[in-house]
């Protein structure tokens, strides 16, 4: 009898724990389900339809068209242009930005320097600024005649560059600005990584007579490898989502030299209302991000093993 009543109270307790857990989870999980999970699934379905401006008034006008949107993407020169530009941004901008982060992390972590806290704050400040406002400011910094950048370069004997007007320079200009905007973030993560390297390693190396460069090559770099992998992949995922910079600074021009995948998605979806086609672009973006995340998971597992 006793065991049965114990059993009863135990199952009662499990029920009440479950009820309390659901009470705490529901307010967060319901919105995530309705406003994130369902739309993500719906976007997948949408990408197989010809949903357009007519379907907006009456959904009955939308039809399933199979993989037609994806096939059309492959034939769309604008899509390939956006792909190439985005890859340019990811493959050139990403490594440069990480190099800047690592360099400044070494600098603010160096024992040879004073005011480390102040320097760290200054280097980090661009990270918290509003991207739209920054893009507005840099548009004027890049002005070929009145901009501060060309003026400064003039002192080095460099002729004025039409940063945002020349198709060859527009993407480098966007990369330069985003390095300025973002390097502080990864700098902080690198500083955390540097501080976790045991000081004894450096002491031992100094006793062996290793100079700064040798210490950097044989201790700092290998010890920072996991951090670097982490930071690179997070940066890559973020960089694939390039949108605000070209939207504000160049509208994707000149001659589509800064058109990115997300900008193309936005234009197709919210300017021309080709929502089916736009959803297909969104899923190509998702594919790349998924690939990056899987790569990260794999590299991390290898790092642990």
């Amino acid at each position: 009898m006793a065991t049965s009543s114990q059993h009863k109270s135990l199952s009662h307790e499990i029920k009440s724990v479950r009820r309390a857990a659901y009470f705490f989870l529901a307010p967060a999980l319901i919105p995530i389900f309705v406003f994130f999970f369902v739309p993500a699934l719906a976007a997948f379905v949408l990408s197989f339809t010809d949903f357009d401006i007519y379907s907006l008034s009456n959904i009955a006008y939308a039809r399933f068209v199979g993989v037609r949107n994806y096939l059309q993407l492959l034939k769309d020169p604008l899509f390939w242009k956006a792909m190439t530009n985005t890859l340019y941004y990811v493959l050139v901008g990403g490594p440069l930005s990480i190099a800047a982060s690592l360099g400044t992390a070494l600098l603010v972590n160096s024992k040879l320097i004073r005011f480390q806290g102040l320097l760290r704050t200054i280097y980090f400040a661009p990270v918290v600024t509003t991207l739209v406002a920054v893009a507005v400011v840099w548009r004027f910094m890049y002005h070929p005649r009145f901009g501060l950048l060309n003026y400064a370069l003039g002192f080095l004997g460099i002729a004025p560059i039409d940063w945002l007007g020349d198709p060859a320079w527009a993407m480098p200009a966007i990369i330069l600005m985003s390095i300025w905007k973002n390097f502080g973030y990864n700098m902080i993560i690198f500083v955390a990584g540097l501080q976790s390297i045991p000081a004894q390693l450096y002491e031992a190396a100094r006793i062996d007579g290793a100079n700064f460069w040798e210490q950097f090559k044989s201790i700092t770099l290998p010890m920072l490898a996991p951090t670097t992998v982490f930071v690179s992949i997070i940066a890559m995922i973020g960089n694939f989502q390039l949108f605000t910079e070209p939207y504000v600074m160049t509208q994707g021009g000149p001659v589509n030299s800064t058109l990115s995948i997300v900008l193309l998605m936005y234009q197709q979806g919210f300017r021309w209302w080709n929502l089916g086609y736009s959803a297909a672009i969104a899923f190509v973006l998702f594919g790349f991000i998924l690939l990056g995340s899987l790569l990260q998971a794999k590299l991390q597992k290898r790092g642990e093993g």
């Binding site: 369902v38 739309p39 993500a40 998605m265 969104a282 973006l285």
Partner: peptide, 20 residues
């Protein structure tokens, strides 16, 4: 399951969310 969902970029959800 939730943590795995984090790989879905917000841009993917914008179109259906707008329609909703």
């Amino acid at each position: 399951f939730l943590v795995a969902e984090m790989v879905i970029p917000a841009q993917v959800t914008t179109l259906p969310l707008f329609l909703m």
